[in-house]
């Protein structure tokens, strides 16, 4: 599915208005950057509560499709712009990581 389709599935907004047509290949949830660095892959939709610039660096190095920020956590404009520049979508939803994973798994998005 595309990021736009994923957004609909998890009641999310495309916070940076970018890369909505990226293809989502798999899902992952983790807040430790080294861990994600070790296990990330291209097209991944990554759920994290971290919102600083380095999240985009990690997502970009792995050519992920999108970063999903749960529980309505705010993301700074600078970070959103950087993600747009790197071709990575940033989704924001009120759902928590557990519910997001549940919905994604139910819709057939696999693990990494």
């Amino acid at each position: 599915m595309t990021v736009n389709e994923l957004a609909k599935l998890i009641d999310a907004r495309l916070l940076n208005g970018a890369a909505g047509e990226n293809e989502v290949k798999c899902g992952y949830a983790c807040d430790l950057l080294s861990w994600v660095m070790a296990h990330g892959s291209d097209g991944m939709a990554w759920i994290t509560v971290q919102t600083h610039m380095n999240v985009i660096a990690v997502a970009s190095l792995h050519e992920m499709s999108c970063v999903i920020i749960p529980e309505g956590i705010a993301v700074e404009q600078e970070v959103l712009d950087k993600a747009a520049e790197e071709g990575i979508a940033v989704l924001g939803t009120q759902l928590d990581a557990y519910r997001i994973c549940g919905k994604m798994a139910e819709a057939g998005v696999g693990a990494a």
């Binding site: 807040d31 430790l32 950057l33 080294s34 861990w35 660095m37 070790a38 994290t48 971290q50 600083h52 380095n54 999240v55």
Partner: peptide, 15 residues
């Protein structure tokens, strides 16, 4: 707090 310091960096490099 920023998600660094998992203690996996050097091992990731070596791997």
């Amino acid at each position: 707090m920023m998600g660094f310091g998992a203690g996996m960096g050097l091992a990731n490099m070596a791997r």
